[in-house]
């Protein structure tokens, strides 16, 4: 029972972050129809920039977060302007390869500036320690992390729902041409989407850095989140959140209960086997749109 509850808790904690990363994929995919693998690399950049500000330069925490977000936004603008805008209308392979290239570029940058060493924020970001609830302990990092994830997602969804720009973004999600004809600046919306997405990825990177340590392997989490995006159905924020939590919980449970039966490291195997199952059983996910093909 204790193992079950502990696994559930850990699952929720990592699932929250998967949700956040999945949402960052979904933002760009919905707006531009590009699946930005680069967001996996963004996790590394976010975590390292935060570490640089917070630990190396010893800046106050709010300033560090602001700087990280600003750098995330700047990178988003550069990517959008130089890499993905010329690719509009290109065959599907081009954006896939370019965003994968950007992912590896970020990995290279992380290696160049921070030498790929695993660092930690120590106590200076989220508080350490744990709460005791009955017979089990709840680590504060993971609890706070989960709360931050949910708050960020809630903020995003309410932005889409209640603001004028959000409305424009939802129109762009439906159809680029229609949106353009309605007088919406589609390019601006693309920029906004990239900025939001990269900021979300930066936040996810910080939280992951706090839990797993700041390092180059953070992009693996980004790849795991792909399974969540697919399970939720490429075009749905709600789906991404639910599926992210589900993937986190499934991953932890399989590792806890079946890990002993399987040799080696199965952290990456579980989500991807799950992804294959989804692709075979329900390729458009839980809440994805099934498009009727026409001739």
């Amino acid at each position: 029972m204790e193992l079950f509850l502990k696994s559930l808790m850990l699952g929720f904690a990592s699932g929250g972050i998967y949700s956040l990363v999945a949402v960052s994929y979904v933002i760009i995919y919905k707006a531009t129809r590009i699946f930005a693998f680069s967001q996996a690399g963004m996790l590394i950049i976010g975590a390292y920039v935060m570490w640089q500000c917070l630990i190396v330069w010893s800046l106050p925490i709010w300033l560090s977060i602001l700087i990280s977000l600003a750098i995330g936004a700047a990178i988003a603008l550069i990517i959008e302007r130089t890499c993905t805008r010329p690719l509009i209308g290109q065959p599907i392979l081009a954006p896939i390869v370019v965003t994968l290239g950007i992912m590896l570029l970020f990995r290279g940058i992380g290696l160049l500036f921070w030498h790929g060493e695993v660092e930690g924020y120590g106590a200076s970001f989220l508080p350490l320690g744990a709460w005791k609830i009955g017979f089990m302990s709840l680590p504060k990092i993971q609890a706070y992390g989960f709360i931050v994830c949910m708050v960020v997602i809630a903020l995003l969804i309410s932005f889409y729902k209640y603001t004028r720009t959000g409305l424009g973004m939802r129109v762009v999600h439906e159809d680029h041409l229609v949106a353009q004809n309605l007088g919406i600046n589609v390019k601006r919306i693309f920029q906004f989407s990239w900025i939001f997405s990269c900021m979300v990825a930066v936040i996810a990177g910080m939280l992951l850095g706090n839990i797993q340590g700041v390092g180059l392997d953070l992009d693996a989490n980004g790849l795991v989140a792909i399974a969540a995006v697919l399970f939720g159905g490429m075009e749905s924020f709600g789906g991404a959140v639910i599926a992210g939590l589900a993937i986190g919980i499934i991953q932890i449970f399989v590792i806890q209960y079946l890990g002993a039966l399987m040799p080696g490291e199965i952290t990456m195997l579980v989500p991807f086997v799950f992804l294959l199952l989804i692709l075979i059983i329900k390729p458009y996910g839980l809440f994805g749109l099934v498009r009727i093909e026409r001739l």
Binding site: P86, V97, V98, G101, R107, G108, L111, L112, H115
Partner: peptide, 23 residues
């Protein structure tokens, strides 16, 4: 690190630039 980082950055830039300029 520099050598590995150089490889990653250099290759990805080549792939990105070629794809954007000469798909």
């Amino acid at each position: 690190y520099a050598s590995a980082a150089f490889t990653l950055i250099f290759y990805s830039l080549i792939v990105i630039v070629v794809l954007v300029l000469e798909p």
